[in-house]
Simulated assay, not measured.
Amino acid sequence: MYLISDYTYHLPQEQIAQQPMDHRGASKLLHLNRSTGEMSHYSFDHLLSILRPDDLLVINDTRVIPARLKGVKETGGKVEVLIIDYNAGMDCLEENGYFQCECMIRASKSPRRGTRLFLGAGITARVEGADAGLFMVRFFCDTDFRTALDAAGEIPLPPYILRNDTTDHDRDRKNYQTVYAAREGAVAAPTAGLHFTRELMEGLEKKGVEFAKITLHVGHGTFAPVRVEDIRDHQIHSEFFSITRETARRINRAKDENRRIIAVGTTSVRTLEFSAKETGQVTPGSGMCDLYIYPGYQFRVVDAMVTNFHLPESTLLMLVSAFAGRETILKAYREAVEQKYRFFSYGDAMLLE
C-alpha cells in the first residue's frame, strides 16, 4: 500500500486525451460506489439525475494564466520561461511597481544572474538569482503587465498533451478553463471542473443542488513525479488557497444538516480537508496548502467527489485511493481502460460516492 509500485496501471497511449470533447458534458462518467465497488457508465450530463436535491458541490474557481513565455536570451539562444508564483508576482507589482517571482527556465545553458531575456509583446526580463532549480525573475514592460502577458504568453498545458499548432494553442485558452474560472493564478486547470457547462450548472441549481466556491491555485508541482520508493517519504508541493467566510458558512451549514459535501476535483478535496477541524467544520482563511493525502488518511469533510483519471504513480491517484480504496480504484481504472475511456486532463470523469 505504501510502495510507489502499488500505484501503477497499464494505459494505452491512444487513450491519453489530446483534445477535449466538442461538448464538455458529453464526456463519459464512471459512477463508482466506493462501499460496494459497483460501477455504472453514463455521460457527464447524467450527473443531473444522479445527484440529490440537497447536495452541496464545492468547486475551485481558479483561473489558469498564460504562464509560458518563449523568447531569446541576450546572446540569441532560445529560452522558455514558466511563471510559477503569479500571486507573489502580483503582490510585488502592487508594492514595488514591477512583477517579480519564481520561475522555471528552459534553455540550452542555464542562465546566470543578470542575464536578460526578451519574451515578446514588449516584455523583457532579468534573472535575479537561482535556487534549487528555480529562478527569481524580474519582468519589465512599458504597458500593463497583465495585458502584455496575455498577448505574449501561452497556456501551460501538461507535458502529455502535445501541441505544434497555433490554432490548438488558441483553442486551449478557452478549453483549458472551467466555465466558472474567475481568480487568476493557476498554471494548471482543476480538470474535473472542465466537464461542467453553464446549462448543467443551471439545471443542478434548479434541482436544488447548491454550489460553493473555493480557490486553490494549482501549481507546477501537481505534475511533479514521486521519486521515492515509500510514498510516505514524498514531500508534496504547496499551493495558495482561499476560503471565504460565506463559503465556510454554507459548507458548515450543510454538514450540520447532514447534507452531502461533494468536492469537484482533488484540488477542492485538498483545500477542504486542509482547512477542516477534527469535527469536520471548515475554517475560512487563506494561505499555503501542503496537505498530502494517501491511503490511511481519515476524511473529515468530503462525502463524495468528482474527479478525472490520474497518472500512474501520482499523488492524485494516491488521494482517490485513500478515498475509495486502492484495489477498488485500480479495478475501476482497468474497467475504464477496457471501456475506452479517455484519460488525464482532457479526458473523462469519475463520480466516487
Rank of each mutant, 00 (worst) to 15 (best):
Y2D: 15
S5Q: 14
S5P: 08
D6N: 15
Y7P: 00
T8C: 11
T8K: 13
Q13F: 12
Q15E: 08
Q19T: 12
D22L: 12
L30G: 02
H31L: 11
N33T: 02
R34S: 09
G37Q: 03
M39E: 07
R52Y: 11
N60Y: 02
D61T: 10
D61M: 04
T62D: 04
V64K: 05
I65V: 12
A67C: 14
R68I: 13
L69D: 10
G71H: 10
G71A: 13
V72R: 15
K73M: 15
K78S: 15
C92A: 13
L93C: 12
N96I: 07
F99N: 03
M104D: 07
R106W: 12
S108D: 12
S108E: 13
K109S: 14
R112V: 10
F118E: 11
V127W: 07
E128R: 10
A130V: 12
A130W: 08
A132H: 13
G133T: 08
M136Q: 14
F140I: 12
D142Y: 07
A148C: 15
D150S: 13
P158G: 13
I161N: 07
H169P: 05
Q177G: 10
T178F: 04
G185F: 04
P190C: 06
T191H: 06
G193W: 01
L194R: 00
K207G: 04
A212W: 00
T215C: 08
V218S: 01
V218M: 03
G221Q: 04
F223Y: 14
A224V: 09
E229P: 05
D230P: 07
I231Q: 02
D233V: 05
H237A: 08
E239L: 03
T244H: 02
R245K: 14
R249D: 09
K255G: 02
I262P: 01
I262H: 03
T266R: 00
T266D: 00
T266I: 00
S268Y: 02
V269M: 04
V269I: 15
R270D: 02
E278S: 08
Q281G: 05
Y292M: 06
Q298F: 06
R300C: 04
D303C: 06
M305Q: 05
V306E: 00
S314T: 03
T315R: 00
L319S: 02
V320D: 00
A322T: 09
E327R: 15
I329W: 01
L330R: 03
L330I: 09
R334N: 14
R334P: 03
A336P: 03
V337M: 09
K340S: 14
K340M: 06
F343C: 05
F343W: 06
D348F: 00
A349G: 07
A349L: 09
L351D: 00
E353L: 14
